[in-house]
Design a protein around this nucleic acid. Sequence first.
DNA 1: GCTTGACCTCAAGTCGACTTGAAGTGGCAG
DNA 2: CTGCCACTTCAAGTCGACTTGAGGTCAAGC
Lengths: 147, 147
Amino acid sequence: MKFMDIGEVAARSGIRPSALRYYEEAGLISSVSRHGLRRQFPPEVLLQLKLISMGKSAGFSLGEIAGMFGSNGVADLPRAVLHHKADEIDRQIHELTALRDTLRHVADCPAPSHMECPTFRRLVDMAGKRGGKHANAKKPKIGPASR
Amino acid sequence: MKFMDIGEVAARSGIRPSALRYYEEAGLISSVSRHGLRRQFPPEVLLQLKLISMGKSAGFSLGEIAGMFGSNGVADLPRAVLHHKADEIDRQIHELTALRDTLRHVADCPAPSHMECPTFRRLVDMAGKRGGKHANAKKPKIGPASR
DNA sequence: GCTTGACCTCAAGTCGACTTGAAGTGGCAG
DNA sequence: CTGCCACTTCAAGTCGACTTGAGGTCAAGC
């Protein structure tokens, strides 16, 4: 009773079976065996799915996520690459923080036109003094989400 | 010389003209007039585009973003709705923070299997003690996210 | 031993967010 | 006045991430 079949994983993770099959196809997760036809998933898969969901939420594509943590546990990417990814996320956290504060400001500031409110402008400028990740005109990523 | 045509906006914002037209179509930005055939954009559009990019980065769809800040400046959504959006973003910031720290941990922790490392598990659990936004099995958003 | 229901595969469809291509327009430099 | 070139529209194509549907399999309960 160690293993779960896809329905249970779906129930526990909130991710549809079709998506789970898709993830397996994409090499993000892997089932350990089959019971008849049925995939059997180990409990770790739930943790992996959480990681995947966080990665998606960060705007990484499934491909990038597969790169970060391979289907069986966690990838052995060079430290530098991982730190670089972490830095990207860090930049994004700052952007989101600015967005959050901007939204709250908009909700509360009584000024008629926000475009002229200095507080507003300061908040927007907050994000990306030097907009690293999103400064490429060639292949704008995320979309996603997140892209 | 107050207004810019699409090429200049593209150059200043890093967003392709085709995407800008698409955004206008979608009601996210608006040109003030035409010079011949050419759309003329006011300088504020750059600020709006920044806001849009932040919104995308937060995983909102163009539709949602259009809802938050209409094409002409900033929307007058009820305060409560805006604060709710802000809360969503806040939750996401926490997730990203956990992801960032997890990545850094993975980069530095010498343990062979992270799945068993308590620090690792704690980090992953960090995000979403009760995963509000992403707990729906019906219509999983973001993607692009992304996309 | 037969039905049931949860699973399987594989192809095709969908949706959002753009991009690409073809065919046309029009301001401005020479 | 002419040519150029950045713009225009509109339809169709693309890509990622899934979902849907048709047709099939199989372990378990009656």
